[in-house]
């Protein structure tokens, strides 16, 4: 199985999961053709599956992602940046030139798209791995499903189910803001298990009941829910972006 690992606008954090599952990868006769972070010899030829980290943020990236699609049987986007646009998509809700000039002294030199967008805004995507960073066992699940010829099944239910299966007392009831009920499961309920509220790094479930949770947050005095969601990694996810996007 020939695979490629590609990076766009991102922090490299999700690629680390490949190193964490390297023992299993060896057993599966996986041939890593392209992975700049991990090897010096790389071939951009043909891939059974390409893993894409990062959001599309510049015109070159837009071209490159299209080439990857052409060369790959399957494309898997990994991590909140590739899936939703990442933390950098916070700029999508502001005036682009304001942002640019506040960050760079000479913005004229910067070639950037106005928005940081998810990969799926440009190409068809076969698999989505949520999270910031991704869960390594979900990454392994993609590869082993392909290897075993099995359909990939990832949860679509909210984090709360995972949290309750683990028997963690609900931190929201105990007085902390938690986005678990609108966030897709899969992380292992890490935050609630440390008595912290989920901040939504796995991104939204389908049709989240944001309005109701917004009222819950207000009742508890947690402030406006969008100040929790929209400063996060998944702000530009389709389920959220409609709400506050400035075009």
């Amino acid at each position: 199985m020939k695979i490629g690992v590609f990076k766009f606008a991102s922090c490299d954090g999700c690629q680390i999961a490949f190193f964490e599952i390297s023992k299993e990868l060896i057993k599966m006769d996986v041939d890593i053709q392209y992975f700049l972070e991990a090897q010096s010899e790389n071939h951009f030829d043909h891939f059974d599956v390409s893993f894409v980290e990062g959001s599309i943020s510049t015109p070159e990236q837009e071209e490159r992602i299209k080439q990857i699609r052409e060369k790959s049987k399957k494309v898997a986007v990994i991590g909140a940046c590739a899936v939703s646009g990442g933390i950098q998509s916070v700029r999508n809700f502001m005036d682009f030139f304001d942002v640019l000039s506040s960050v760079y002294p000479s913005p004229d030199y910067i070639k950037s798209l106005e928005k940081s967008k998810p990969v799926s805004d440009y190409i068809d995507v076969d698999y989505e791995l949520r999270g910031c960073p991704i869960n390594k066992s979900q990454l392994l699940e993609i590869i082993s499903s392909l290897y075993l010829g099995k359909e990939l099944v990832l949860p679509s239910y909210p984090l709360c189910l995972e949290c309750k299966i683990k028997g963690i007392p609900c931190v929201l009831i105990l007085g902390k803001p938690c986005l678990g009920s609108i966030t897709v499961a899969g992380c292992g309920a890490i935050c609630p298990s440390f008595s912290r509220g989920c901040y939504g790094c796995f991104g939204p479930i389908k049709n989240p009941n944001i309005q109701s949770l917004k009222e819950v947050f207000e009742d508890h005095g947690f402030g406006d829910i969008y100040s929790h969601i929209l400063t996060g990694f998944n702000a530009y996810n389709r389920e959220f972006r409609g709400n506050d996007e400035k075009d």
């Binding site: 909210p158 309750k164 009920s181």
Partner: peptide, 13 residues
């Protein structure tokens, strides 16, 4: 239904 978050907590507990 407009209030419920479909979080599943009730069924789990």
């Amino acid at each position: 239904g407009s209030k419920c978050l479909a979080c599943t907590s009730c069924t789990q507990l």
